[in-house]
Simulated assay, not measured.
Amino acid sequence: MSLDNNRFHVKFWGVRGSIPCPGANTVRYGGNTSCIEMKVGSHRLIFDGGTGIRILGESLLSQLPVEGHLFFTHSHWDHIQGFPFFVPAFIPGNQFYIYGMPSPNGATMQQRLHDQMLHPNFPVPLQIMQAQLKFYDFEVGESIPIDDIVIETAPLNHPGQAIGYRVNWRGLAVAYITDTEHFPGRLDENVLRLSRNADLVIIDATYTDEEYYNEKSSKIGWGHSTWQEAVKIAKAAKIKELVLFHHDPSHDDDFLDVIGEKASLAFPNTILAREGLSLELIPEPKEQEVKSIAKG
Rank of each mutant, 00 (worst) to 15 (best):
N5I: 10
F8G: 01
G14K: 01
S18N: 12
N25Q: 08
I36T: 05
R44L: 12
T51R: 02
I55Q: 09
L61S: 06
Q63D: 13
L64K: 08
P65D: 04
E67G: 14
G68I: 08
G68T: 01
H69N: 11
I80G: 01
Q81P: 00
G82C: 06
F83W: 09
F86T: 12
A89K: 08
A89N: 10
I91S: 07
G93C: 10
Y97P: 13
Y97F: 15
G100F: 03
M101W: 04
N105A: 14
G106M: 04
A107R: 15
Q116G: 09
V124G: 07
Q127V: 10
G141L: 12
I144M: 06
V150M: 11
E152K: 05
P155C: 03
L156M: 08
H158S: 10
A162S: 15
I163A: 05
Y165Q: 09
A175P: 11
T178G: 12
T178Y: 08
T180Q: 07
E181N: 14
F183Q: 15
D188T: 02
E189D: 08
L192K: 00
S195Q: 05
E210H: 05
E211Y: 00
Y212S: 00
Y213R: 06
K216Q: 13
W222R: 09
T226F: 03
I233W: 00
K235D: 10
K235E: 14
F245H: 09
P249M: 09
H251Y: 02
D253C: 02
A263R: 00
L272D: 04
L277H: 02
L277G: 04
S278D: 10
K295P: 10
